[in-house]
Amino acid sequence: MIGIIRTLWLTFLHLFHKNDTVPYPETKPYLSPRYRGRIILSRDPNGEERCVACNLCAAACPVDCISLQKGEKDGRWYPEFFQINFSRCIFCGFCEEACPTYAIQLTPDFEMSEYVRQNLVYEKQDLLISGTGKYPDYSFYNVSGLAIPGKDKGEAEREAAPIDIHALLP
């Protein structure tokens, strides 16, 4: 009996509490930078595409919504096309984890509704941004041991000069 009256009273007091609801379109909620929303493809600090078309993201994707084709130019790989089907994407972020070059990144934006399902298939030009995203200084070819035009073996950051296997010196 006392319990019932106390419940009534406490519930009544909630009339004077502040609402927890965020009136969404007018007030946007804060989304942390790590929020897993719309996917983008970023560029390295030199403005080149970061993606090296390694297909790791497509392999990691649990719903198989990434599709890309490798192309090659000056010894570098790049995606000829790169599609993400956002009508299937579950925003799990596995692609971002799998990517060795920080090319594919998830962003704090989720307002991507469409009236036509087909419009949810984003092409490379829709995905590619002009900046570096979350990792401003990272450039895959600057740290990898791969030789590309303008950067030979042993010239990458923190990379020792290659061992001359024909020399007899220790």
Binding site: T11, F12, H14, L15, H17, K18, N19, D20, T21, P23
Partner: peptide, 10 residues
């Protein structure tokens, strides 16, 4: 509306 207020929502 009242139920909403009792549950801290509008």
């Amino acid at each position: 509306r009242l139920l909403g207020f009792f549950q801290d929502r509008p």
